[in-house]
Nucleic acid binder design. Structure first.
Lengths: 140, 140
DNA sequence: TTTGAAAATTGGCCTAA
DNA sequence: TTAGGCCAATTTTCAAA
């Protein structure tokens, strides 16, 4: 990892589909150099993968909620793993702070979110508290 | 937006650099169909863009913190906009729940995070409370 | 780093529903 | 009118030298 790798990474984070030839042109280097560096970063795991940013509301997901979960310490791991299995829950983190588990949940509307939180997740044993924060706007 | 669009989208979310020809092959359709649908979704804004997922710790960012900010109502907007300008703050949301502003901050270590939170952001007028939650592990 | 073949992208034009 | 098929030119990828 040097500055050149970092430059490549920044461009790829900005546009994950940018062609290697174009990156090379902007960085005034060769395409093969760029490609080999990217491959190396992929193999080393610096680059975990590529993804597509979605406008959730245009896709019909009107509600995205950052949702914290509190559990009993002994149920913590099993709850976290159970949450991962739900299709509606897009991200699951363990963290310090108010809630040991933080998630990102996509739902069509408030009704669906409520259904997910209070019905579907009701089957999980050990959840003590659910703290949803609905995202109003992504500024950055 | 129909099922075919959704299938394409799911593949692109899973691998943002997948070639249209490959998507077409897996979906048993033609490359031109895939290409035209993707272009349409880009134009309609369903697809906002493409990015690269980074292993933050391998990049030297040992600490990623979901950080909530509380402000006085009258300072809310200016605080949110100021936060956007910091390079270390990768995401800024306005939200309901405990904190009106939620952010994701990348730092090399605890020392750097502390410096960002309590020195750099000290110049912003109107922040009442800072609530950082350090991410321990991303399970999904 | 350079080179050349294979693969993918792009744009235009056409047909069919 | 819109989605998809087809073709040809260009660009990109990829591996070997």
């Amino acid at each position: 990892m040097d500055n050149k790798d970092m430059d490549i990474l920044n461009m790829l984070m900005d546009d994950g589909r940018m062609a290697f030839t174009e990156i090379a042109k902007k960085l005034k280097t060769s395409e093969s150099s760029v490609r080999k560096r990217v491959k190396k970063m992929e193999e080393e795991g610096v680059i975990k993968g590529y993804t597509t940013n979605i406008n959730t509301s245009k896709l019909g997901y009107g509600v995205v909620a950052l949702t914290g979960f509190d559990t009993n310490p002994e149920d913590f791991l099993s709850v976290a793993q159970s949450l991962c299995e739900f299709e509606e829950i897009k991200k699951v983190y363990t963290s310090t702070g108010d809630h040991m588990i933080m998630t990102e949940i996509w739902a069509k509307d408030g009704k669906e979110l409520s259904e997910i939180l209070f019905n579907k997740l009701g089957t999980i044993k050990g959840i003590k508290k659910i703290c949803p924060a609905i995202i109003l706007e992504q500024l950055k």
